[in-house]
Amino acid sequence: MAGAKLSKSALERLQAEFHDLTTRGRIEVADKIERAREEGDLKENAGYHAAKDEQGHMEGRIRQLEYLIDEPEIVENQLYVIVYEGDSDDMAERYMIGNMEEEVEGADVISATSPLGAALEGSAPGQSITYDAPNGALTIKVLSVEPV
């Protein structure tokens, strides 16, 4: 099974989160459940139910991380700086096309399958692109494309 397309930095961050959740995280939740059990009747024990709910969410995240970091494809992401038709260059927006687990300061991460992501994929600086957005056709100008 192949994992997700991730940048090296995102992979390292997700591996660290996975390690933290499977060690410290599981120990902390187990301790919370044990303390709540000691309070008695489990049917009406809000602390116990909250701890079990937390455990369920954490285990779900662990499974998600396992998928993402299992044999990932390491990619070099691109940061696209664009401006919408009719806007001035100082109103530029910054987007990175990639996995939603990516984090880029000062930029929004969008999916390659989104209308804007699909339109930007492979574009070059200076290029004008018209794409179909949910509210109608929009035209953008690519100001720059930078490696992230």
Rank of each mutant, 00 (worst) to 15 (best):
H57N: 11
D89I: 15
K8T: 12
M100L: 15
E102C: 10
G106R: 07
L138G: 04
G56D: 10
E85M: 06
E105H: 10
D87A: 14
L79A: 03
I129S: 00
E66F: 11
M100I: 12
R37H: 08
Y131F: 08
A92W: 15
N135E: 10
N135A: 13
E17Y: 08
T113H: 04
Y84P: 15
D31G: 12
I74P: 03
K8P: 07
E59F: 04
T23K: 02
D108K: 15
S128W: 12
L120I: 11
S123K: 02
G122A: 06
K43Y: 01
Y95D: 02
T22L: 03
E146R: 11
I62M: 05
T113G: 00
L116V: 05
P72Y: 07
A30I: 04
N77I: 15
I129M: 05
N99L: 09
S144I: 11
E39L: 04
A107N: 02
Y95T: 06
T139N: 09
G86Y: 05
M1N: 06
E73P: 00
T139K: 02
S88R: 07
E28C: 14
G3D: 05
E101P: 07
L68Y: 08
V109F: 07
G56K: 09
R94P: 01
L116Q: 02
E71P: 00
Q127F: 13
D87I: 10
G136S: 15
D20R: 15
L120R: 04
G117P: 00
E17C: 12
R26F: 08
V29R: 02
E66N: 13
E103D: 11
A36V: 13
S7C: 06
A92K: 09
E59C: 05
E12N: 08
Q78M: 00
E101W: 04
K32H: 01
G126V: 15
A107E: 03
Y131R: 04
A16S: 09
G56R: 06
L68H: 09
D89R: 14
V145S: 01
G126L: 14
G60K: 11
Y131E: 03
T22N: 00
E93R: 12
S123H: 00
G98K: 14
V148P: 05
H49Q: 07
S88W: 00
I74A: 02
K32P: 08
M1H: 10
D31A: 02
Q55F: 09
L116M: 06
A50H: 14
M96N: 06
V104L: 13
Y131A: 04
M1D: 08
